[in-house]
C-alpha cells in the first residue's frame, strides 16, 4: 500500500436504520489508480456503503474523505463535481429522452457548441450506439442501456468511478468487454470501486478486494488471498464459522 493520500477514505463509518446496524465501523481506504472490488453476500451492506459514499444516505457516525477533504455531509451533486461518478445497478438513464440527448445532458456541464457535438459523436461510436442515437433511451436493449449509462458516467471525466454491479444482466461476452473498458479507463488514471457478484469478472479486473459481512469489513486482500480464505467461503455458503 502506498503512503500517498487515499482518493477515498472512510473512518469509523456507521449507519443504523432503526435497530438495524447496516454499516459497522467501516474503515476503508482506496488508493489513487487502483481497481477495487467490493464483494459480500446479499445484505452485507454493499449498497448502503455506496449510498453513504454518494451522499444518498447520511452516516450515523464516522467520516468520509475524498482526496483528504471531508465530504461526509456534502450533497451528492457537490461530490460529483469533485470528481466522483457513478453507474447504478438498474440503468440510470433518461428513458423518455433520446440517446444523444442523454449524452448531451451528461456532457453539457463540461462542453458546449461544436466541442459538445463532437464529443457526443465520439461517445456514440465508442459505445456502439450510433445507430440508436435518435431512439428513446428506454427503447434500448438492457445491455445497451448499461453501456449508455457507463458512457454518461464516464463523460464527466471522473477521478473516481463507482460501479454498482456493472455487469448485471450482461452476457459473458458483454461482461468481458465491460471489463476491458474498465481497465482502459483505469489505464487513463481513473480509480474504480465496483460492487460485483460475478467472481470471474472480479478476477478479471480487481487489484484489491474487500469483503463486507453484516455491514463490517470482513476481509481484504488480492483476489487470490480472498479466494483462499476459508472464512470467506464459509460466509458465502451461508454457514457460520467458529
Amino acid at each position: 500500500m502506498t503512503t500517498s493520500t487515499p482518493i477515498l477514505e472512510t473512518q469509523g463509518l456507521n449507519k443504523w436504520f432503526g435497530g438495524l446496524h447496516v454499516t459497522n465501523e467501516v474503515d476503508f481506504r482506496l488508493d489513487p489508480g487502483e481497481i477495487h472490488c467490493l464483494i459480500g453476500p446479499n445484505g452485507a451492506g454493499k449498497s448502503t456503503l455506496f449510498k453513504l459514499l454518494l451522499g444518498e444516505h447520511t452516516p450515523s457516525a464516522g467520516r468520509i474523505l475524498f482526496e483528504g477533504k471531508e465530504i461526509t455531509i456534502e450533497p451528492s451533486f457537490a461530490r460529483i463535481r469533485r470528481g466522483i461518478s457513478v453507474k447504478f445497478q438498474v440503468p440510470g438513464i433518461f428513458k423518455e429522452l433520446r440517446v444523444h440527448h442523454n449524452l448531451e445532458i451528461a456532457l453539457q456541464r463540461r462542453l458546449k457548441g461544436d466541442a459538445l457535438d463532437a464529443e457526443i459523436e465520439r461517445l456514440l461510436g465508442f459505445l456502439n450506439l450510433r445507430e440508436q442515437a435518435d431512439k428513446l433511451a428506454g427503447a434500448l436493449s438492457h445491455g445497451q442501456k448499461q453501456w449508455l449509462e457507463i458512457g454518461m458516467a464516464v463523460s464527466l471525466r471522473p477521478k473516481l468511478l463507482l460501479l454498482d454491479e456493472p455487469t448485471a444482466g450482461m452476457t459473458p461476452d458483454e461482461t468481458h468487454a465491460t471489463g476491458e473498458v474498465i481497465q482502459a479507463l483505469n489505464a487513463e488514471g481513473v480509480t474504480v470501486l465496483a460492487v460485483e457478484h460475478d467472481m470471474a469478472f472480479v478476477r478479471q479486473i480487481a487489484q484489491r478486494v474487500t469483503v463486507l459481512h453484516f455491514g463490517a469489513v470482513f476481509a481484504q486482500g488480492t483476489i487470490d488471498e480472498i479466494v483462499a480464505d476459508d472464512r470467506v467461503a464459509a460466509i458465502y455458503l451461508g454457514q457460520g464459522y467458529d
Binding site: 451528492s76 429522452l97 454518461m152 464527466l156
Partner: peptide
C-alpha cells in the same frame, strides 16, 4: 426534463 425523468441520475451528473 432530465430531472423529471430521473432526478437521481440528474443529481449524479452534478446538477
Amino acid at each position: 426534463v432530465a430531472l423529471r425523468d430521473n432526478p437521481e441520475r440528474a443529481e449524479m451528473l452534478g446538477y
